[in-house]
Nucleic acid binder design. Structure first.
Length: 822
RNA sequence: GCCCGGAUGGCGGAAUGGCAGACGCAGGGGACUCAAAAUCCCCCGGCCGCAAGGUCGUGUGGGUUCAAGUCCCACUCCGGGCACCA
């Protein structure tokens, strides 16, 4: 579209000036009030897409707005530069992942700069920088020292064809390998874990105090999944040395237990299985252990029948409540990873137990009286205890307490809290990640690499081949080393860390990448932390945000971050996704709309304004055929403002009059509306308010009646100031044209509204009869209730409608409304 | 299955319990122009009406209230998250 100015030249000129001015480079000793604004650092996948544009438009708005409010705003940028896509690209091309990564970082950096977003680039973080690797490894070692990092066996997806480990994303829905098509197996490997469960309670409790979207808080709570109950022993009949420990949230249902179930992975399963039952049990275990993880986690009413999903072990246990002999089954609906991997089954009060009991003809004993009209199978609602010996007549909550106490005396039981949250498996059998700084020595065992030898970096002389196996595992120069303790021959750990470890502390590195020898100086970090406003996609609602919270707490506890707050992100805003044709816009789906074409037509300002205007920032947005028209409309608004500021068709009047007062009121009301919008994520209504003001100004200044110069100047200056965080280039240019080339609109103070200009002298009062609007009346803004009522009743059209009848009631809400009830 | 969201013109959306549809897009009409583009002006939920005006209208059905898009109850549909968590 034809523009009244050269948009490309104008925008690149200002981007250059912002870089030169240093306006957004803040030092750690800046005396102003602090504000830490942060967008989630991106994975560098090449030039920015609309999701980035949306994210950084919101972020940049916050940065520029808070700066104009007089704050020192920390606005850093960086790249989450380790990860699988670069590794896969390198495998395909037979080259090194760094080549792709560095190139894509430059592409993304350039396109982000073209958006006009401003950052303090001195603080840039790239996860694959040796400096960053060094401190990521130092943190690992501190966690190891503190007992927060440990080794254990854990299953991985193993492709026999490729002889390598696969990420979950590389396993197809039917359980085959993405690359070779072979059936993927579960295989146990010794791997590293972070003990996030040690913080389960704190992670759960501190969710409450965060200014985060409720949706995200709920997701975090559910993910942590705390449940209270009891754990106790079920003695195996005839084997005095053998007992199965079970966990239940319903100890009150103890008299209703009619069987017990262990998970296929249960360590005692072998001992429990009798010779006669061996075949059935083995068959079940084999199937559960196979590639059928997906099958197993599918809902119970799909896939394989329940009869095939459980088998009798041949053993019995004794119910401690009533001495009954209970058959022990193995079934895949019990998970080895949760609780004790074994349960007491209560078909009358648990739906899964009920379904299983039906198929296997197991008895049912109700221990809670269901309501009279209850027709279902399992009843898990409230009620009075029945068939439960000493618990009869009690409420469920009281029965839980007494049953737990009973178990304590009779079955080595105790109250127990369980979490759904598992420890964080951080080992990745990948090349393009941060190496785990550990060596294995035959004599000394697991030996941490001494801090002064960090970073441990991957060698450059590798090429990724089609096998997909990490070259770290086979590169002798990397793997063979000497033991730091005894000096003997040793092997380096070949695994790298999950890339979520990098994104768990980058926001701390931003605060102080300057002090040598430490990841960050705690006193410098303390000046900025916690992040005042974190902005990112909802897709990170659980993992990234949970891991970063864990890191923050652990870093404080291991002594790397003394004095820092234990929660990293005070306020979180999650932006909506951009969808196209029903699915999320993404590179992998191939439905990207590149921003570049818009930089050349409507400019970054036009595109930014569109993202701000199109709807509430936290809502998803559908990119359709109509979208380009809306973007053009946003550029049209900029052009109209430009032409008005350039005085096109404006006529002047010497003296100010009532029309000027009205315009000034509109200007000051707009200040309030835009400011409110900025504070409450109402950017769309903020843009609308500016559009309305422009309509008002244009009509007024171009009318034959004319505009008073001072009023006009105040209005245009205010528009520039209010627009500065949204459309920074054009507002900067207009400001410079009006005030001199050395004047920066973004260095000005945010405008404040004159309270006397925000309220009107007179307002339109609505007169209703029975809630329906029948008349309107111009009244003084401070009209009294009595005067409003009198004026309403005196209005001729109202009097005519009432026809002399006295109203039964009159509700007056001066000065806006009077409702007459006949 | 459970837990969150959401449903308003042709479309995106606006509306501290107080004039539903701000603002924009699309559409229609007009001005300017030889013409087109751009720009500017006007109209734009349905129905009745020449008009003034009337009447219905915020997914469905109830309710609370002088007054409900907004609050409460029940439901329908759509989107998302978790999904055998004992």
């Amino acid at each position: 579209m034809a523009r009244p100015f050269d948009v490309v030249a104008l925008e690149s000129k200002w981007q250059q000036r912002w870089r030169d001015s240093g306006l957004y480079e803040v030092d750690n000793d800046d005396p102003r009030e602090r504000f830490y604004a942060l967008c989630m650092y991106p994975y560098p996948s090449g030039a920015a897409h609309q999701g980035h544009v949306r994210n950084y438009t919101f972020g940049d708005l916050v940065v520029r707005y808070q700066t104009m409010r007089g704050k020192a705003v920390l606005s850093p940028f960086g790249f989450d530069s380790f990860g699988l896509p670069a590794e896969n690209a390198a495998i395909k091309a037979g080259s090194h992942p760094r080549l792709f990564t560095d190139q894509r970082i430059e592409e993304l950096r350039a396109s982000v700069q073209k958006l006009g977003a401003v950052y303090d680039w001195r603080r840039e973080v790239r996860s694959h920088d040796p400096e960053y690797i060094k401190y990521s490894q130092l943190i690992f070692l501190k966690f190891f020292e503190a007992g927060l990092a440990y080794r254990a066996n854990a299953p991985v997806n193993w492709c026999p064809g490729c002889a390598t480990v696969l990420a979950n994303e590389q396993v197809n829905a039917d359980g085959t390998c993405d690359r070779s098509g072979d059936l993927v197996e579960r295989k146990n490997l010794e791997q590293w874990f972070f003990k996030i469960t040690a913080y389960a309670d704190e992670l759960l409790n501190e969710v409450d105090g965060l200014e985060w979207p409720d949706r995200v808080k709920t997701m975090q709570r559910n993910w942590i999944g705390r449940s209270e109950g009891a754990e106790f022993a079920l003695q195996v009949d005839g084997q005095p040395d053998l007992a199965i420990r079970v966990f239940t949230t319903r100890p009150d249902t103890g008299f209703g237990v009619t069987y017990a179930v262990v998970a296929p992975e249960h360590p005692l399963l072998d001992q429990l299985t009798t010779a006669e039952q061996r075949d059935g049990v083995d068959e079940l275990v084999t199937r559960a252990r196979g590639a059928s993880e997906l099958e197993r986690t599918a809902s119970s009413d799909s896939g394989i029948g329940l009869d095939k999903r459980g088998a009798f072990t041949g053993s019995y246990v004794i119910n401690p409540f009533n001495g009954d002999k209970l058959p022990v089954y193995v079934a895949d609906y019990v998970l080895g990873t949760y609780g004790t991997g074994a349960i007491m089954a209560v078909p009358a009060e648990d739906e899964r137990d009920y379904a299983f009991a039906q198929v296997h003809n197991l008895p049912l004993v109700r221990t809670v009286a269901p309501p009279a009209d209850f027709e279902g199978g399992a009843y898990s609602g409230d009620g009075v205890k029945i068939n439960s010996g000493f618990l009869d007549g009690l409420s469920i909550s009281e029965a839980k307490k007494q049953a737990t106490a009973f178990l304590g005396e009779r079955a080595a039981g105790e109250a127990k809290v369980n979490f759904r949250l598992r420890d964080w498996l951080v080992s990745r059998q990948r090349f393009w990640g941060c190496p785990i700084p550990i060596v294995y020595c035959d004599g000394c065992g697991i030996v941490p690499v001494p801090a002064e030898q960090l970073p441990v970096v991957a060698p450059d002389d590798v090429s990724m081949d089609k096998s997909g196996q990490s070259p770290l595992a086979t590169h002798e120069g990397f793997r063979s080393t000497t033991c730091p303790t005894c000096g003997g021959a040793a092997r380096r750990e070949a695994d790298t860390m999950d890339t979520f470890t990098d994104s768990s502390w980058y926001f701390l590195r931003y605060t102080d990448p300057f002090t040598p020898g430490v990841p960050f100086d705690p006193s410098a970090a303390a000046k900025w932390m916690p992040v005042d406003q974190y902005i990112g996609g909802i897709e990170h609602a659980i993992l990234h945000l949970l891991y970063a919270r864990f890191y923050m707490k652990a870093l404080v506890d291991v002594g790397l971050a003394p004095g820092l707050p234990r929660e990293p992100f005070r306020r979180l805003f999650t932006q909506g996704m951009i969808r196209m044709g029903g699915s999320k816009m993404s590179k992998s789906k191939g439905n990207l709309v590149a921003p570049q074409q818009y930089y050349e037509s409507v400019g970054a300002d036009g595109l930014r304004l569109f993202h701000l205007f199109v709807g509430p920032p936290n809502d998803d947005f559908d990119w359709t055929e109509q979208t380009n028209d809306v973007i053009d409309g946003c550029a049209r608004f900029i052009d109209r403002l430009w032409r008005l500021a350039e005085l096109e068709e404006v006529t002047w009047r010497d003296e100010a009059d009532a029309t000027d007062l009205a315009v000034r009121r509109a200007v000051h009301k707009t200040i309030v509306r835009v400011t409110d919008g900025f504070e409450k994520w109402g950017y769309n209504t903020g843009v609308a308010a500016l559009m309305e003001l422009l309509n008002t100004l244009s009509k007024w200044a171009r009318d034959a009646h004319g505009a008073h110069r001072a009023t006009f100047d105040e209005a245009i200056d205010t528009m520039c100031l209010l627009l500065a965080p949204m459309a920074p280039h054009v507002s900067a240019e207009l400001w410079a044209k009006r005030h001199g080339d050395d004047q920066l609109v973004h260095a000005q103070s945010w405008p404040t509204a004159d309270p006397s200009l925000v309220v009107d002298d007179t307002v339109t009062m609505v007169i209703q009869i029975a809630g329906k609007v029948k008349a309107r009346l111009e009244v003084a803004a401070d009209i009294s209730e009595a005067d409003a009522t009198a004026a309403a009743l005196a209005e001729p059209s109202i009097a005519a409608l009432l026809n002399g009848a006295a109203p039964s009631r009159v509700i007056a809400r001066p000065p806006k409304l009077v409702n007459i009830v006949p």
